[in-house]
Amino acid sequence: MFGRAFFSRLNIGPCIIALLLGSLVIAAPIVNAKGRPPRAVFLILPDAITPPTVNIEAEALGAGRYRLSLDTTEFMFTELCVPEAEAVPVGHAHVHVNGEKVASAYFPTVEIGPLAPGTHVIDVVLRGQDHRPIVGRDGLAQGVLSITVPHGQT
């Protein structure tokens, strides 16, 4: 009898909302405590895994074209992409020139161009099998190279 009266007076909607907010206030700071980058964007490697690195070397092929050699450590290239990748340093690389994506590299060499005469910033980010950029304990697995295409090459 008492229980029925109690529940009839109790407005269940606000109670659910209060309970939800209370739970989130307790849980969110615990989840956010590590301060890691957003997992929706980045493939975050566990601290125990040595972070991969990438260095870029560019070989001019003429007519503004370049062959990039991606010298990686602790990283394995694969052509296989999956919807949801495991947090391991396996995948491919995205190649950007001046902030525009120009190629996906599934092997350690990739050709780009023709590039217009002038200075270009080439930016390579190692990606997991689900295309998320890989972040290790040292940050984003990224290599940057600046090249200058001489006039009269294109």
Binding site: P37, P38, H96, G99, V125, P133
Partner: peptide, 10 residues
Amino acid sequence: TPDEIAELSR
């Protein structure tokens, strides 16, 4: 953009 992604990672 790639720059924004790099900034976001930091």
